[in-house]
């Protein structure tokens, strides 16, 4: 009876999981299968030639990396500070409930909307021009909600007994947060942030309007430069290139590089996570 039902649900859940793993596995296999032959040291260390039909993708790699670094530098401190404010300092009123709702809503806004916002606000109004700066700020806006929501959750998961014990020993509120709340929630905060950053690495729409160059075979000199970026380069090769068929292996190889980049980021995050988990087990 109940155990039979339990079995059915168990197998259903298992099947769903297998299905998802298979789909993802196929995508990854397809990219690796077609991309690996075209992937070489030259491909990742050289400038593109002939509109991307030959040569490498160094500027796009450097572009995406610099966008990611900038985005992390802006969004992580801002997001964590907002989360700390919401979870530790703000009174739980109707106003903060509305702010929370707004943040969750923002997390679901399509990325092209962020792109348009970045174009209107950072590129034109603040006059940053189409630049790394404008692109990073736009991407940061896009992933801030994700970081705030997941960080706040991680902070709230820290048992209040730690806060009480620390305060009762004469620590100030900030000392308490810094030494006895934040360290224990870091693994959760990092997990959430990496989701956001992975999204920032792969999105085309927000950078399309704010930073990405169609074809710019050189490295950027300042944060006010345009750059090429991997997802946008991929999009160009796949849809805008006059000889789309000829550059197909290059498309796959570019996709593979992007995939490896995101994978590397996630692996890094997992290691940091394990480190903090080990250090503060609770």
């Amino acid at each position: 009876m109940s155990t039979g039902k339990e079995q059915v649900i168990y197998w259903l859940i298992r099947m769903v999981m297998y299905a998802i793993v298979m789909v993802i596995g196929y995508i990854i296999f397809d990219i690796v299968w077609h991309g690996l032959p075209a992937l070489s040291w030259d491909f990742i260390s050289q400038y593109p030639r002939k509109g991307g039909a030959e040569g490498g993708i160094l500027p796009a790699i450097v572009g995406t990396l610099s966008l990611l670094v900038g985005t992390i530098a802006v969004s992580l401190p801002l997001g964590i500070c907002s989360a700390i404010y919401l979870s530790e300092y703000a009174e739980q009123s109707r106003f903060t409930a509305m702010i929370r709702l707004a943040i969750i809503t923002l997390a679901g806004v399509p990325s092209i909307v962020y792109g348009l916002f970045g174009l209107g606000f950072f590129v034109l109004l603040l006059n940053f021009g189409t630049s790394i700066l404008a692109g990073c700020l736009t991407l940061a806006c896009m992933i801030l909600p994700t970081i705030i929501v997941s960080s706040e959750e991680a902070l709230r998961a820290v048992p209040s007994g730690y806060r009480d014990a620390s305060l009762a020993l004469g620590a100030t509120k900030w000392e308490t947060i810094r030494t006895n709340v934040l360290p224990y929630s870091l693994s959760g905060i990092i997990t959430g942030s990496i989701l956001g950053i992975g999204r920032a690495a792969g999105e085309t729409a927000p950078i399309l309007l704010t930073v990405a160059a169609f074809y710019l075979p050189r490295l950027p000199n300042s944060i006010f430069d345009q750059v090429m970026a991997l997802p946008y380069h991929l999009y160009i090769l796949a849809t805008q290139h006059p000889e789309a068929d000829k550059v197909l292996p290059l498309q796959y190889a570019t996709a593979l590089v992007l995939l490896l980049l995101v994978l590397g980021l996630s692996l890094g995050a997992i290691f940091i996570r394990i480190h903090f988990r080990k250090k503060y087990r609770w």
Binding site: D164, A165, S166, A168, L169, G170, A171, Y280, W282
Partner: peptide, 20 residues
Amino acid sequence: VVHLRRKVGMVFQKSNPFPK
């Protein structure tokens, strides 16, 4: 209040050592 809590310590019902 920081000085006060140095003078007046507290032990809670649920023991709450830090995970350190």
